[in-house]
Structure formats: structure tokens, C-alpha cells
Amino acid sequence: MSDPTYAEHASPTVAYPVTSADGDNRQGQQKPKPLPAGKTPVGPGIVTAVGLTLAIMVVALGVVGVHDALVAAGATGGAPWIDSAVQAFNEVTPAVWLVPVSLSLVLLGTWLLLTAVRPRPRTAIALRSQTGVFLRPRDVAKLARNAAQEVDGVTSARVTAGPRKVTVAVQATTTEGVRTKVTQAVATRLGALATAPTVRVTVKTEGSSS
């Protein structure tokens, strides 16, 4: 990789040769360490969906307030929504329906509390590297499937992959030695993962019943 490749794109406000703050020319010096890894990618999580829902509810509540103000000003017809909603509860007495309602509210509230503190799901598997290089589990499965299909005798392969375990189900012309070869091929292909997954292989010969 040549230096100008990056220097051409840097477009600093004032063009200087690449030098350190104290003026030392860096060329010929030892290469610096790679940038440290960013945080492991995470998915949005349920809390994001809850946040979006609550944000929409806040907007809806605001619309209700503005509507009632417009009704009072005579700018729009109809009855104020807040009054109508409040009056619907007038002279309501406790009844047995309160039991399932209160139970549902407690369950919903507990779920919201747990959602608020639950960490967002990790969506990536790290590679062994000095900087941050990540694969999604489905991509680990694709790599493992490709490795399994390259083994002699294998006609097709299905793979499911998680952060710690890869399960490979292959169809082969023979069962002899195929399991070992597929296990080795998959383990080798995934050897760069930071945490080596457990590889589980099942072999079926073509025509055998499942």
C-alpha cells in the first residue's frame, strides 16, 4: 500500500507533508499499531421498538392537546377529546374485569422494566485480529457450508451457525471418513474466528432415509 493513496484523499485545509506534531518526518519509521477495534456490533433490540412506540404515543398525545385547543378556539368542530375520554370513566365501579386488566398491566409493566435494562443483542462474531473484524452468524454458516461442500464425496450441505456452535448436515456418496474431513475443513475455514466454535457434523448417504 503506498502512502499517496491515502494522502491524496485526506484533503486537509492546509497541505503539509505527513509529519508528526513535533515536525519529525515519519517516513522510514516503524509502522504504527492498527486502530483499536470499535465496539462489537449490536442489533437495535426490543428497546428501540419500545422507544419508537412511545415516541409515536407522545406525538399522538400532543395531537390530542392541539385538537382540543382548536376546538375551544372554534377553529374546528366536534367535542374535545380529553373531555370525552374522561367522561367515559365517570361513575365506573370496580368489577371482576379489573382482575385480568390489573394482571395484564403488571405483566406489561414488568416486561417494559426488563426491556429497559436488557442488553442489546450482539449480531457479530469477531475474527482474530488487532483491529475489529466481524462476521454475522449467517455468514459464518455460508463459509462453513462452502468448506463442507468442497470435501470429496459431499453432494450438499446445510449449516446453522451461532456464536459458539456450528452444526453441519451433509449428504454424501459415502459415510467413510467424510465426517472427519468435513469437521476438519470447517474448523480450518473458521480458524480465524476469535473463539473457535464447536463443529458438529452429521452425514447421510444419498438415498438413506432421514
Partner: peptide, 27 residues
């Protein structure tokens, strides 16, 4: 690929010289 990513991240560190910069390569 991991080796190439490390090399690339080292070059980025040298060019941008930002201690607070992190790198994330999503394959």
C-alpha cells in the same frame, strides 16, 4: 482478510493520527 484489515487499520492510524479513532470491519 484479517491480516489485510490489520494492515489497512495501521495505515489509517498513521494517516489520520487520531488516538480516539476506532476501526470496525463488517464482513
Amino acid at each position: 482478510i484479517a491480516f489485510a484489515a490489520d494492515q489497512m487499520a495501521a495505515d489509517l492510524a498513521r494517516v489520520l493520527e487520531r488516538d480516539d479513532l476506532r476501526c470496525l470491519v463488517q464482513l
